[in-house]
Design a protein around this nucleic acid. Structure first.
Length: 823
RNA sequence: GCCGGAGUGGCGGAAUUGGCAGACGCCCAGGACUUAAAAUCCUGUGCUCUUAAUUGGGCGUACCGGUUCGACCCCGGUCUCCGGCACCA
């Protein structure tokens, strides 16, 4: 062992050794308990950033720790490799996206290996590999065959100048990100997945996910937006037509003074309107379509609308009420029509004021704090019913149910649950994604490609111009197909899938990544699943995590896997920032992993990033902090060197002879206990590291003592190296070897705790007067409350403290404190 | 607007179940080593008054109040910042 910590040589040496010995390859092993730790796989942008380092360092510590604790650990890595940046690069450079993507993946793999992460690379997946997207297509076909995938017409964002479809992220301030042209809508037939069928299970399942941050669960709940209410039928005068509305406030039904339809409502075509109104309506609908993209983000839109000149009947009191069209009613939610109760809804109130419509209060506050007959704003609180016939005088909350019960008998109202969640639009008019394996025959309609023909490969004879529908449309070979039913010429779907599909099941494929016969062997999946610990950025709190849960549920229903929830525990790590701001090129505050590894090595980078903040919090990058982490590793390295010099054999047996020995043994074992807790249970790596630092400080003091105990010191060094190994594997492997061990530190067990060393003869307690600390003293440990109290009250120092004053009360907490309350 | 979360020294952060606030690290200061510097090692380091003193006291976890022998922690209210959703009927 050299005296100087040469991280460059050490890290290279061990990375090579680990790779050559296949130390991270795992197999199913029924004799061991499994542990599946997974970090969200990256998009192969080419360069690793600090966010990646943080994410993967966290996963690596957990993985290595669990392995030391005897688990059979699955810790895989791969790439979420389809997506827009590769396609943009293709447009820019004029070659296919695969070149750019595969080069980037190669670079990133190298960087990941430089960090010393314990991945089983044999299980690597890349979603753009044929042997991956083949199974993606296979899943889509299972969904299609089971009614979970369907096609319908819906609008996309369209740039009239580039003649191309834009993703939401490609719209900047209502304009195309490339040319700035105002974005319009265009209707296309697109594929959907029926995620709404799973809305209830997706909400209810959250309650059992104890290992998820409540923040994420609430976000998903809000996103799905389940609300209980009722559908009410309003008859349109002089017709057989009804308007169906959804409401969560059936109690306000008597206060309905008009009805509003969304501009896109299908009923509008069927209504018999005057020419004048019809023209106004058409103009309004056109206006709405135009402004939707630009003004969507602006808050407090002024209410606009058109009176249709016709009336409906309030089913509960027979009142004649006008029918309006307004864009404040959304077609995509509920029935696309609402009953308006201006007295008790802010939006309706605003609209009614503007159009001079009746405002009829039906609820008044119990304390009459608001005069509901002269409202200046909607009264949205609870209270007592008025103007509501038989319900008058009752509390409105109880009336919600009663109204539904009463009028459901007459068939005008019906309980109904609504969701904010819509079905998942998965068609993308893009090249670099999984081709949707569907064929269209004019006579027979849509059909799935046959399983033996999978994968439907991405064509190579395509052009990337940035214009037109999709580069795939430029392929001559791709679109031609044959109908499986009638044998006539047919066409192939040219759209590809949203890349969120690819990442919705990769954790399953890792369980059996090289299977060429099947998507995966169910036995293997059953062995490894669920993911015991999932780690990633909070930006995926809603979409990715919800889609993955949906896939797991659907695949489970179809019998391919078991269980509803893929991720038992979730850790969402915070961002890495510098000087209070996000690292970004434009601010010029980016620190790259590469430069840190070059200057200090991977171990230092890992250690700092885990030490600087608890994982779920933001991490403020500090160059001085990195320096400190590096200093610490040098101190540790020196301890191993001292052990070699001072301890003349590998013998770790010893007896604790002095007080100093006992103290060091205590600190050592306390540290083992604390680190195990912090890493294994709390994921507080920062405090785990700080307690290891305390141990190191204690060892520095100990090594200078005249009555230095070789065996004890040697044992402490060994255990220190073992405890630190999950955090900084390279330096620990080097020290472990120098200490004379042949088997890799990665394969060692977590050090055992010597319970006896944790027992202390004395313990420091605090004496308080009226809750204020006055004295600290050592007393015999584990005294009973009574013994402690009577002994301390007899103590001279304590007596002095009390000074003959009147003791009102004494609180004694064993091994902790004594509080004397004086008058 | 609605729903979450947070607020602790000069800085990052600790305090796990209501029981010593500020662990650990950074910064800074002093000392040892050195011809010198760097590195390293050691010591100090919440604020404030007081003292010959490393003496003695007061204040202190965003702010105001409450519960308690005792509150960073629990309760009520206020402010600020961050995140998510946003005309969802």
């Amino acid at each position: 062992m050299r005296e100087v910590y040469n991280f460059k040589a050490i890290e290279k040496k061990w990375q090579k050794a680990w790779e050559e010995s296949n130390i991270y390859i795992v197999e199913e092993d029924e004799s061991k308990e499994k542990y599946y730790v997974l970090e969200m796989f990256p998009y192969p942008s080419g360069k690793l950033h600090m966010g990646h380092v943080r994410n993967y360092s966290i996963g690596d510590v957990i993985s290595r720790y669990k392995k030391m604790k005897g688990f059979n650990v699955l810790h895989p890595m791969g790439y979420d490799a389809f997506g827009l940046p590769a396609e943009n690069a293709a447009i820019k450079h004029g070659y296919l996206p695969d070149k750019w993507t595969y080069e980037n993946m190669g670079e990133m793999t190298e960087q990941l290996k430089e960090l010393g992460l314990s991945y089983d690379w044999d299980r690597q997946v890349a979603t753009c590999n044929e042997d991956y997207y083949k199974w993606m297509q296979w899943i889509f076909i299972q969904f299609f065959n089971n009614g979970l995938a369907y096609k319908k017409e819906s609008p996309v964002n369209w740039c009239p100048s580039c003649l191309t479809v834009l993703a939401n992220e490609q719209i900047v301030d209502g304009g195309c990100e490339r040319c700035g042209t105002e974005v319009t809508k265009k209707n296309l037939y697109q594929w959907y997945l029926k995620i709404t069928d799973y809305a209830d299970r997706l909400v209810d399942g959250l309650d059992d996910l104890d290992g998820w941050p409540s923040k994420v669960k609430i976000m998903q709940k809000n996103w799905i937006g389940r609300s209980y209410g009722a559908e009410v039928l309003f008859k349109i005068e002089n017709t057989d037509l009804n308007i169906k509305v959804f409401t969560t406030r059936a109690d306000t039904l008597f206060g309905t003074t008009y009805v509003v339809l969304a501009p896109e409502h299908s009923l509008l075509k069927e209504l018999n309107l005057s020419d004048e109104v019809r023209e106004k309506l058409n103009n309004y609908v056109e206006e709405t379509n135009k402004k939707s993209e630009i003004d969507r983000s602006s808050t407090n839109l002024e209410k606009t609308g058109v009176f249709l000149g016709i009336y409906a009947e309030n089913p509960v009191n027979g009142k004649k009420i006008p029918i309006y069209v307004s864009d404040y009613v959304l077609m995509g939610y509920g029935t696309g029509a609402v009953m308006a109760v201006p007295a008790h809804d802010e939006r309706d109130f605003e609209f009614a004021k503007k159009f001079g419509l009746d405002i009829l209060p039906v609820i008044k506050p119990e304390d009459d704090s608001v005069d509901v007959n002269n409202l200046t704003e909607a009264y949205v609180g609870d209270g007592v019913m008025i103007n509501s016939g038989e319900f008058n005088g009752k509390h409105n909350r109880t009336v919600i149910k009663e109204v539904v019960e009463t009028f459901s008998k007459e068939g005008i109202i019906q309980s109904k649950v609504n969701y904010r969640l819509r079905d998942w639009l998965i068609s993308r008019q893009r090249y670099w994604g999984t081709p949707i394996p569907m064929i269209y025959c004019e006579d027979c309609g849509w059909m799935a490609e046959k399983e033996e023909n999978l994968p439907v490969l991405l064509p190579k004879d395509v052009e990337f111009t940035g214009k037109g529908e999709s580069p795939i449309a430029t392929s001559k070979s791709f679109q031609n197909a044959v109908c499986h039913k009638c044998g006539k010429p047919a066409t192939r779907e040219i759209d590809t899938m949203d890349t969120f599909l690819d990442s919705s099941w990769y954790y399953l494929r890792y369980c059996d990544a090289r299977n060429s016969e099947k998507i995966f062997d169910k036995k293997k999946v059953d062995y490894w699943m669920n993911v015991d610990q999932y780690i990633g950025g909070v930006e995926h709190a809603i979409l990715h995590l919800m889609y993955a849960r949906f896939f797991q549920m659907a695949l489970s229903d179809l019998g391919f896997t078991s269980g509803n929830e893929p991720f038992k525990n979730l850790l969402t790590q915070g961002m890495v920032i510098k000087d209070g701001r996000k690292m970004s090129k434009s601010i010029g505050n980016v620190v790259t992993p590469a430069e840190i590894i070059e200057k200090y090595g991977a171990d230092t980078a890992r250690l700092f990033i885990l030490f600087a903040a608890p994982p779920e919090k933001e991490l403020d990058w500090s160059d001085d902090g990195v320096e400190g982490a590096y200093r610490f590793l040098n101190r540790v390295y020196k301890l191993a060197f001292v052990a070699q010099e001072k301890c003349h054999n590998n013998d770790c047996s010893y007896t604790l002879s002095s007080k100093d020995d006992k103290e060091l043994a205590f600190v050592l074992n306390k540290t083992i206990q604390k680190v195990a807790q912090d890493v294994g249970e709390r994921f507080n790596f920062n405090t785990a590291i700080s307690s290891i630092m305390e141990l190191v400080n204690a060892m520095y003091k100990y090594k200078e003592l005249p009555n230095f105990n070789e065996g004890l010191f040697r044992d402490a060094v060994n255990k220190l190296v073992l405890m630190l190994a999950p955090f900084t594997p390279h330096i620990c492997e080097e020290m472990w070897e120098s200490l004379g061990y042949e088997e890799s530190v990665c394969l060692q067990s977590w050090p055992e705790i010597d319970e006896e060393a944790l027992v202390r003869d004395t313990v420091e307690i605090v004496v308080q007067l009226n809750g204020k600390v006055k004295l600290k003293m050592d007393i015999q440990s584990d005294m009973t409350r009574e013994d402690m109290q009577s002994m301390l009250l007899e103590d001279e120092k304590v007596k002095q403290l009390v000074d003959g004053k009147n003791i009102v009360k004494v609180i004694a907490v064993p091994n902790k404190l004594l509080n004397i309350v004086l008058k």
